[in-house]
């Protein structure tokens, strides 16, 4: 692509993302009627809308990362506040159909250094997966593992397919409903976090149910 065409392409994706954002905000204004026939399609539409927005955020990030290493902006944030925010966002999409909880393990420091926007993209991807597959509950938990901050999104679904567990991230085949793309991106995000020679990491497991963990040094 020529330089100009590339800029237009990025601008177009931005515009799509923002218009979808307005659409999502407009849908939030539609009152619920406590009737399954009315509320269910509405909730599905909202979730789908958020998922498309997420895909566009991911595409923009990949677009940027194609030119140079993933741009990363580290600052200090409260892990407590961060998981609470992720929980509330997930709960607003689950609309009571799933129980969404947040938990903070003992020993998590009051602040940690990371790129909030990038980690948000990785976790939102995992949360959207869980919203689609969980039976009744989703948990977002923050703890410490090997001196790294470990944020885990887990659910009570059937868990990840076997092939994803062995090769998460970069070796994941693309396709399979976009799961592969999201995981690849999450691994890039984890690995972009480097501190004192240690690197971030993405871990998937079935505990049972799917568990997605991002470890930040």
């Amino acid at each position: 692509m020529s330089l100009e065409a590339k800029d237009l392409y990025a601008a177009l994706m931005h515009e799509l993302k923002n218009n979808l954002g307005l659409l999502a905000m407009a849908m939030e204004q539609i009152p619920r009627q406590d009737s399954e026939a009315h509320d269910r399609p509405l909730d599905d539409a909202r979730l789908l809308c958020q998922q498309v927005i997420e895909r566009l955020r991911q595409s923009l990030l990949l677009y940027k990362a194609a030119e140079r290493p993933l741009p990363i902006e580290i600052d200090a944030y409260s892990p407590h506040e961060f998981v609470q925010e992720m929980r509330d966002e997930a709960a607003s999409l689950a609309h009571g159909r799933l129980q969404v909880s947040a938990a903070v393990d003992d020993g998590v420091p009051p602040i940690w250094f990371f790129d909030r926007n990038l980690v948000d993209i990785a976790l939102t991807n995992a949360i959207h997966n869980s919203l689609a597959y969980a039976r009744s509950r989703i948990e977002i938990r923050v703890g410490m593992a090997e001196e790294r901050l470990c944020i885990t999104v887990s659910d009570d679904s059937d868990g990840y397919p076997e092939h994803l567990l062995h090769a998460p991230g970069l070796d994941t085949p693309l396709g399979s409903g976009g799961t592969g793309l999201g995981l690849r991106l999450s691994q890039m995000i984890a690995q972009a976090h480097v501190n004192r020679g240690r690197t971030g990491e993405l871990r998937l497991s079935n505990v049972p149910g799917a568990a997605f963990s991002i470890l930040l040094p």
Binding site: K17, G21, L22, A24, M25, E85, S92
Partner: peptide
């Protein structure tokens, strides 16, 4: 960062 959801803003 736009777009954001109402919950995020409240938080």
């Amino acid at each position: 960062l736009k777009p954001f959801n109402g919950e995020v803003l409240r938080n």
